[in-house]
Design a binder for these strands. Structure first.
Lengths: 79, 79
DNA sequence: AATTATTTCCCTGCTAACAGGGGAATACCA
DNA sequence: TGGTATTCCCCTGTTAGCAGGGAAATAATT
């Protein structure tokens, strides 16, 4: 997961034909943010990352053994 | 996804019998971080969130239509 | 009810993320 | 090869995340 996020964002941005600056503007963040994101910087605020991911149509999900088994018994729980 | 992260963390912390302070110490972050995380604060650094998730054995994954179709053709790609 | 544990929410100082600018380096064309 | 587009990486000032302390509010335990 270290550089995974960086790779995913780079991959999706290139595929969508956007430059770093264009992506930054669409996401409402600074251009250096996008640059550092793709460089693999970890200390970036979640909300900024989410803005970028939203533009690229990338979804973020959480998984854990505990969660899976719980959701099986409570299908309508929001957690 | 707004409060989802907060709920997941709270749920897992309770299940593991940890207090906010204990979780914070194990994750190597401040106690207020954990409190704000569970309150749903979005502007938190990703690396700090990941430290907390790691303690609780929660995994983070990315999904997108583009990614799925690409991984099908390149099963060993790391992106 | 009384005691203890935990959470909530103040506060302070430090630090680094952030936006935005700019220039050099590199990549991408015609 | 020359020109353009894009990326890389520096800089500056602002701002807010962060750790840590502490105290009131709430929850849990006996």
């Amino acid at each position: 997961m270290k550089r995974q996020l960086a790779n995913i964002i780079l991959f999706h941005r290139k595929r969508s034909g956007l430059t770093q600056v264009e992506l930054a503007e669409m996401a409402g963040v600074g251009k250096n943010m996008v640059y550092e994101l793709e460089k693999g910087k970890q200390s970036i605020q979640l909300d900024n990352i989410l803005r970028v991911l939203q533009v690229l149509n990338i979804e973020l999900t959480f998984q854990s053994p505990l969660r899976e088994s719980f959701m099986k018994e409570h299908p309508d729980a929001d957690c």
